[in-house]
Amino acid sequence: MAVSATLPDAMNPTRSFQGLLLTLQRFWAERGCVILQPYDMEVGAGTSHPGTMLRSLGPRPWRAAYVQPSRRPKDGRYGENPNRLQHYYQFQVILKPNPPNLQELYLQSLEAIGIDMKLHDIRFVEDDWENPTLGAWGLGWECWCDGMEVSQFTYFQQVAGIECAPVSGELTYGLERLACYLQNVESIMELNFNGLEGDEKVSYREVFLQAEQEYSRYNFEHADTAALFRRFAEAEAECRALLEKGESGERHLMVQPAYDQCLKAGHSFNLLDARGVISVTERQSYILRVRELAKACGAAWLKTAGGGAN
């Protein structure tokens, strides 16, 4: 049964960007997920949200779904490329441990947003997922709908360099791309955001074009690289300091503030990378430095209640 059937027209995921988002939220809420809100920091992907990155570690069951604005400074195109943005939305689902019917649940979610399995060719195509800055990897697929990648489906094997026990299933929907397909438009900017028509219609362009232009200028031309290098070093130092200060015998008392600093370092690195001031050889070493922070945070998380410590 498609959830959309019970929604008003303006909330129809095939007409409304926010309708798509709300439909997915409702779908996964009905399957026992806590619906989190976006993390209030700049991250490159929904995986970085502590609701995935930290919660996927340790033995405690966890089911969550949320939208995460994702910042990819390098992908900015001043709003001129129909498919590339420096800021876009991911819809993230994390189920720990993964239920045995996760593929079926995923397919049901596609039906819920209006994809008819009798008309569309859905395929699971090998894609080994890896996030070097988070020290995370898993096996899974790109999910294709009629030749288009609409989601990433991953069974986490390792996060923060730590074996996942149990394994989480992670679903990431690229919302803009999915919406373009559902609404049958060629450019993200043309998306109907609120599902209304005429004077009341708000497009993706109206909401985000100006931001894309401004941030592209900032990301590529004006971000203060000296300040970013400094901020990277400061965040790195503070992350380490917090991890040290939070140590309390068998337990750790300050993992999440430390992890915030790890995220800050990661974002500074992404901006520096977009500014083109990091050479190929340096690049690897910056990634490694962030990974070391992420690993240390993950290890500390296991010493908290959320991480399953007794």
């Binding site: 033995p59 441990p97 045995p100 096996l139 069974y155 094997q157 996942c164 026990a165 149990p166 299933g169």
Partner: peptide, 23 residues
């Protein structure tokens, strides 16, 4: 060439590995 663990059983150390979940 590459195998994985999955599901509730993967909480234990020596759970079955397969290329993707075996049903």
């Amino acid at each position: 060439p590459k195998s994985m663990r999955w599901g509730a059983a993967s909480a234990a150390g020596a759970s079955l590995r397969w290329v993707r979940p075996l049903h």
